[in-house]
Design a protein around this nucleic acid. Structure first.
Lengths: 135, 135
DNA sequence: TAGAATTGCGCAATGT
DNA sequence: AACATTGCGCAATTCT
């Protein structure tokens, strides 16, 4: 999870802007004191906008972002497909169950009928159709 | 499909920046030439950055975006849940099929055995399936 | 420490 | 006109 509260957001641009690229980035208040104010500037490096280093990093990140998002979308799509796949399989299984149930029903009926006949005429094996496992 | 190439990107910020909100938005180079260059400003309304109208619109859009993205994520999550749900149901169905199949198998075996006995030892009522009390 | 991958966010174009 | 989507870049974080 990314719970970054985005403290110092500097959403600047001027990238694919073919024009003169204004480069209006006052975000680097160096005028306050020294290059490195006595405050605890722990790690917050103020990237020079325009720095080749910076540009390079941005470009790479942009690529990574694109890639990541593509991947994400792909995954979502796959999940949707999976749903359809499972739904189909489900239907197949339901159909099979229906068939098996019917077959079973028929056989049981035959059995009962037969047992009945036997009991009526020749009372020998009366316990034959009651052996299911419940569950 | 949206093949917008994002021509004039001006990713500004200064929004959730609780501080004095510098409002450093020189993106409206009014000093370069005229307020509206002689180009064919067809419909591209040069939104005044700083215009109340603009700010309001941006804010609303930001809300809409957030909402939309939340919705999107929710949907994705739902889809994932659906997958799990379907997987579970599938397992249930498979189990049921297994059970039914076994039951059927047992019954069939009983049937065969019985028929066999009849044929082997007491071949008397070979055609007595539906005559007296059918049903 | 570096670099790639994620993620939240805002902008603008576009869709409804 | 208003809200919804979507592609895109930035920056902060997290993962490797």
């Amino acid at each position: 999870m990314n719970i970054s509260q985005s403290s110092s957001d500097e959403g600047l641009n001027s990238h694919l802007s073919s024009p003169p690229t204004p480069q209006l980035v006052p975000l680097n208040p160096e005028g306050g004191g020294k290059a490195t104010p006595p405050s605890k500037n722990k790690k917050v490096q103020r990237m020079d906008r325009g720095s080749e280093e910076y540009r390079l990093r941005r470009e790479r990140n942009n690529m990574a972002v694109k890639k990541s998002r593509l991947k994400s979308k792909q995954k979502a799509q796959d999940t949707l497909q999976r749903v359809n796949q499972l739904k189909e399989e489900n239907e197949r299984l339901e159909a099979k169950i229906k068939l098996l149930t019917k077959e079973l029903s028929v056989l049981k009926d035959l059995f009962l009928e037969h047992a009945h006949n036997l009991a009526e005429s020749v009372p020998q094996e009366t316990s034959a159709a009651g052996q299911e496992k419940s569950t």
